[in-house]
Design a protein around this nucleic acid. Structure first.
Lengths: 173, 173
DNA sequence: CCTGAAACGGACTGATGAGTCCGCTTACTT
DNA sequence: AAGTAAGCGGACTCATCAGTCCGTTTCAGG
């Protein structure tokens, strides 16, 4: 029942590879038709495995999201909450901005279960740093998330580090 | 030749009013059909006056852009370059965020002649503040523009003041 | 092999939205 | 009042894209 036929498994891999490439290049605007063409399959084949485009997108970024959750858990376990927060943000940014298109997909899928988990973890990292006095108290954890995101999104390629530095300086207590 | 017939003039006004309302509500995503319906005219009438949607959008924001240019010129004339910069940014933000939809239209039309003029003026305000030592030197004038924009765009309604405060704090020398 | 179920893929639908066209209407002019 | 050019508006084209359907192909087990 859960076993896929050999050709189905092969096509599934091709689709995921193609989708990763297309979403990395064009963000959530990549079309299913493009992805199917890139994978060398009909687009009906894509829809059989992933009932909606969002399902496919989430399958592509799931690995990314998991990785980010791990970073968040490490930050929560670290000794110095302030340092952990700043390190966490930089690592998160490096991971996301290595493929800006996928980052935009992560933003697009913000309400999916896995992504919601990540948000909860990230908010705890922020709160901990605030309690330790490393981050100003007049912003909410959610605000920090949005500020960092806005510094990374719609930013000229290769310039985001400078932008993030400014925002993080603005966030220090 | 340049005189419009009475009905044409009346419809032109209606279209501009409707477009302002629609763009303010939905940003650049407002459709010409919606605008025409709101104005009570056929959409052919809209296209006769404004060959493309962008032309219409720019006509709507032109007044805004002019007002912003005035603010920039005032800032350039002010005595204290640093204070002038921060006042300028806050006034610009208040003006834009009173109608977030129109702000998104301004961003969308960033390359139109009038908007380009505004960018040049704004960049001079920034450079002047940097030379006066009020703004950190490791960012370019364009970076400041983009950072401020990113703090205002895609931001929960009513929260943008906090976000802007953080970014401006991060920009101080 | 040979057969049936799984998988395939592309034609099709339906929605949306920009921009064109042209037969009809209406406002000015004389 | 009548002629005419300006103006009108909606039907039409064209393109895009998500998602459906079904006749055909291909895999895998007996």
């Amino acid at each position: 029942m859960t076993e896929l036929r050999a050709d189905a498994r092969r096509n599934l891999e091709r689709v995921l590879d193609a989708a990763t490439e297309a979403f990395a290049a064009s963000g959530p605007d990549a079309s299913i038709d493009d992805i199917a063409r890139l994978a060398g399959v009909g687009h009906g084949t894509v829809f059989r495995r992933f009932p909606t485009k969002d399902d496919l997108m989430f399958a592509v970024i799931e690995r990314h999201v998991d990785e980010m959750c791990t970073l968040a858990r490490e930050a929560l376990a670290a000794a110095d909450p302030g340092q952990a927060f700043f390190d966490f943000v930089w690592r998160l940014a490096e991971l996301n901005m290595s493929t800006p298109g996928l980052h935009r997909c992560v933003v697009h899928c913000g309400d999916k279960p896995g992504a919601a988990e990540l948000e909860k973890l990230a908010d705890r990292v922020v709160s901990r740093a605030q309690r330790a006095g490393a981050v100003r108290r007049d912003v909410k954890a959610e605000d920090v998330r949005l500020l960092v995101r806005s510094a990374l999104t719609n930013t000229p390629p290769g310039q985001w580090r400078r932008y993030l530095a400014v925002v993080l300086d603005g966030l220090r207590a």
